[in-house]
Design a protein around this nucleic acid. Structure first.
Lengths: 355, 355
DNA sequence: TTGAAAGCGATACCAG
DNA sequence: CTGGTATCGCTTTCAA
């Protein structure tokens, strides 16, 4: 005897003892639980993952031992042994932006308690996304959700050769890395422009976030331009703007647009809180909305509904997109064939007083 | 020969072949890189973690092999072997609320590329937090950040016996599980109330989120009450409200408060977007702010600054709190003693036109 | 500067 | 229903 009890925790590192403190007490292992419950480690493992197969009496002893030891399964070991993890990785352009929070929430809710979520932001930069994806792949995530739909070649390659499911959510791309759950930004912008035309506005300005590395903004601008073309309206490049995000971005854009002659009749601001910023600016200047200037926005939220006048806006099903994305991942992970590679969740135009 | 090359990927599971598809191609392992670079696996391992120790020529060959194989280190295996992970776990009350996003961003920015972030929400429920913490501990995170500062006994126990660093960020508690980086909600509410009293307001209402399981809201209400007491003002329970979150919550609270007689002169709404909701409601009803009713808020943001009249508010250093929390974690993980167990990042009163 | 051998703590497979 | 044994892919330790 003696040697027999020489488990890991009895050993001492020869080198620095480090600031041991409370950290010295490492958690119990499955072995400890097994010993206490007087079963083999395999039975403990089963008790945790397929309790139905284990004798109820045995099960009870094991649970007793688990409680007594405060045992928490070591998923690192579990994942290594089983060659699969329960971590889903999520990359959004910005952690700050509450738009993405909706999708994140949808993913988290749908994944439930059996999966964990790893999150990173790309900073709206393709290389940022690549870095995040590489990190996730190193953690051997079992699935990936990307908001952006434009990627570096290496990002695509890495994900594809990792062979894990991936859902893109930012735009309804035709050729996704793997799957996509989203709506058509192009169509949404087209429809909103058409809506404004239908209301009788002819000189309609357009404001989006910077197009660089942002396929959503790009698609929306294209949708706007196509609508103008289709309705035989001329394009005036002076009233097609890219703006910094934030309320001030929208406010600044509106100020600039109001200087242009001939005067614009309406403006469609899409992205972030641009439209709200513009509306508040209009109020500050006593520009009557919609008489002097009509304003339409996108990414409808409670705020757009509560300002005066309430904003006409596009509603995107961000939460549902997150739920759907997670379901698609789960389906694939479960080994089922994907129900669909490309899921269009659509969008709605919410007409209010601002147009 | 033959047997010698019989590596894992040559074997076939006897059972179901599963929907192999692209997933069949599993990534390269360190062994593959080693073989290609004609070095031992140990040298590859070193090349990755302490390149300075490896011969430059060898290093070059190894990097060549890494690129050729598309090797991505398997952190699961690495973590198991080294008994430490590079994952930090973060629990916020709600993933939707952009308040918390600031802190999350601060943590993410400070952790940098060497750590990954796992996020979960507690749904404002203590048991939700416990579940999330248990999951994180199972993943063997190397540190935890909790927004909430009230916890179930088991949550505290689990974290403490896991012996990993933990920072709480929601309130400057006296007795944290481990460390805290925050500001005093009590003091903040006290000061804002005092500010209103200083402005000459006497009948001051107070609105917060529901107190249940929410220590921040509780502390703020206590701060408000203490201020009234200190300035010799009477407490009228009819004007101390708990409100649902959201703009509508704030709007509803204001409507209710405006019915109370004698009329209130000012209201301090703290939490979520309550104050903004109240202000917008006042505007809709043409209640003059601040003449008819003064409004003060908390959690200052761009919106509160851009509405008319701009809102007097409390500014909390949420981003800095995230940065500080991450630094504290990093310090501990690095083996350094913590610079401080309790860090007060303070707050500011931002006076504007609404009071 | 490099390598061999022994784990890390679980799971999978097969046998009993 | 239960247990033995061989991994999983990497790091640690020790020796060369």
């Amino acid at each position: 005897m003696g040697k027999i009890n020489n488990s890991r925790r009895d050993r001492k590192k020869p080198g620095a003892v480090k600031a041991a403190g409370p950290a010295a007490a490492r958690g119990a292992r499955m072995t400890d639980v097994a010993r206490l419950a007087e079963v083999s480690i395999m039975t403990v493992s089963r008790a945790l993952r397929q309790p139905a197969v284990v004798d109820p009496e045995t099960l009870k002893r094991i649970h007793g031992a688990i409680n007594a030891t405060g045992y928490l399964p070591n998923r690192i070991a579990g994942s290594l042994a089983s060659q699969r993890s329960n971590i889903v990785g999520l990359v959004v352009p910005s952690l700050r932006n509450s738009l993405f929070a909706e999708t994140v929430k949808g993913v988290a809710d749908t994944l439930g308690a059996n999966f964990d979520l790893m999150i990173a932001d790309s900073g709206y930069v393709l290389d940022g996304e690549e870095t995040a994806v590489a990190a996730f792949l190193s953690q051997r995530v079992c699935g990936i959700v990307l908001h952006n739909t434009k990627h570096t070649p290496r990002t695509r390659r890495m994900i594809q050769s990792a062979g894990i499911p991936c859902v893109e959510t930012g735009n309804l791309v035709r050729r996704p890395i793997d799957m996509v759950a989203s709506f058509s930004n192009h169509k949404a912008a087209f429809e909103m422009t058409a809506f404004l035309v239908g209301k009788g506005y002819r000189r309609i300005a357009f404001v989006s976030l910077p197009l660089r590395d942002n396929d959503r903004a790009r698609e929306r601008q294209a949708g706007y331009l196509q609508a103008l073309k289709q309705f035989g309206l001329p394009v005036d490049r002076r009233i097609v703007l890219e703006s910094m995000p934030g309320l001030r971005g929208g406010a600044g854009a509106l100020i600039e647009l109001m200087k242009v002659r001939p005067k614009i009749e309406a403006v469609f601001l899409t992205g972030d809180v641009l439209a709200t910023g513009a509306l508040l600016e209009a109020n500050r200047n006593d520009w009557r909305v919609p008489d002097t200037i009509a304003i339409a926005g996108s990414d409808d939220n409670e705020l757009q509904e509560c300002v005066s006048p309430a904003l006409t806006s596009l509603r995107f099903p961000r939460y549902d997109i997150g739920c759907t994305a997670a379901s698609m991942l789960l389906n694939r992970i479960g080994g089922n064939l994907p129900p669909a590679q490309i899921v269009d969740l659509g969008f709605q135009i919410i007409p209010r007083q601002s147009t």
